[in-house]
Simulated assay, not measured.
Amino acid sequence: MAPFGTLHTTTTFLHARVTKILAAANLNGLDVQVEPNFQYGITNKTPAYLAKFPHGKIPAFETPTGFYLAEASAIAFYIADSGPLRDQLLGRTPEDRALVQMWVGFADSGLWVDGGAILGPMLGTVGYNAEDVAFHDTQFMRCLRRLEEHLAGEGKVWLVRDEEGAASEGDGVVGEVDGGEECGERVWGAGEVGGEEACGGWE
């Protein structure tokens, strides 16, 4: 049987934005293959890759039917929505589905950005700026307090209802950061949340 789809991403390390995609596939029992010959900075610059994914970013996803999708959260959503646990992962009601997306956005725009900006200088992927790190440290702790208050104040185990969902899955891996990938003269690593069309980048 053909796999559900192929994920194009680097194989030199497991990136947090890839982890949530693979977690959704595993929970839904979907066979998602990682392209074994992918070379970051090379494969995603080829005409064949750019014809499918014009921005040249990773991760990117394609199905045997020729459906192409970029942006990590969109890929995770599509995979979560394509299996038997879709209601558990994405929510059973419009309100629950909206809350799941709220927490996914919270992780993408808060925890990921601020956590990456703190760890980037430690990993050597970005230069150290004391004022910048202090700012993101304050914002990161604010995000963590928000999570703790939500879980403790409402006696929750998961972020939306008391069952595992995509929001818990996304927040569970968002603290992981990559070790950096060279892209021309830039190094894409912790704290980088986008990429340039010419060389690609993380989504």
Score class of each variant (00 low, 15 high):
47 P>F: 05
133 V>Q: 02
7 L>M: 09
194 G>C: 03
73 S>K: 07
136 H>L: 10
117 A>S: 14
88 Q>P: 02
159 L>A: 08
15 H>C: 00
124 G>R: 03
83 G>V: 08
113 V>I: 14
15 H>T: 00
117 A>I: 00
2 A>L: 15
128 Y>D: 11
121 P>T: 03
116 G>R: 11
118 I>L: 06
172 G>M: 09
22 L>E: 06
127 G>Q: 14
73 S>G: 00
123 L>V: 00
88 Q>N: 07
106 F>N: 02
122 M>V: 15
53 F>N: 00
72 A>H: 09
163 E>S: 08
50 L>N: 11
154 E>F: 00
96 D>A: 15
153 G>C: 08
110 G>R: 14
156 K>N: 09
49 Y>P: 04
107 A>L: 07
17 R>F: 00
23 A>N: 02
136 H>F: 13
152 A>N: 13
134 A>K: 12
21 I>N: 01
93 T>S: 12
188 W>L: 15
191 G>E: 06
126 V>P: 00
177 V>H: 14
191 G>S: 06
14 L>V: 13
54 P>Y: 04
201 G>T: 05
134 A>C: 05
6 T>E: 10
5 G>M: 10
174 V>K: 01
127 G>E: 15
104 V>G: 06
90 L>N: 04
178 D>M: 15
198 A>R: 15
133 V>Y: 02
81 D>E: 10
149 E>C: 03
109 S>T: 15
124 G>D: 08
117 A>Q: 15
132 D>Q: 13
175 G>F: 12
135 F>G: 04
167 A>R: 09
1 M>I: 10
78 Y>S: 06
185 E>L: 11
97 R>H: 12
49 Y>W: 05
42 I>P: 00
83 G>E: 02
90 L>Y: 02
82 S>P: 03
77 F>Q: 14
177 V>N: 05
93 T>L: 01
117 A>G: 02
1 M>W: 00
42 I>N: 02
106 F>S: 04
39 Q>A: 12
48 A>R: 06
95 E>K: 14
74 A>L: 07
82 S>M: 09
182 E>H: 07
46 T>P: 08
32 V>N: 11
63 T>Y: 04
7 L>G: 04
80 A>P: 04
69 L>T: 04
121 P>W: 01
136 H>E: 13
147 L>G: 05
139 Q>L: 09
153 G>F: 06
28 N>L: 11
140 F>N: 05
12 T>W: 12
64 P>E: 03
61 F>P: 02
29 G>P: 10
138 T>D: 13
58 I>K: 03
60 A>H: 10
62 E>N: 11
142 R>P: 02
155 G>F: 09
188 W>D: 15
179 G>T: 12
105 G>H: 11
184 G>P: 09
47 P>N: 01
149 E>I: 12
61 F>G: 06
40 Y>C: 06
155 G>C: 05
181 E>D: 03
185 E>P: 09
2 A>Y: 09
135 F>Q: 14
12 T>D: 15
46 T>D: 06
57 K>F: 08
54 P>D: 03
118 I>F: 02
163 E>N: 11
106 F>W: 04
103 W>N: 06
142 R>L: 03
194 G>W: 10
19 T>I: 15
68 Y>V: 02
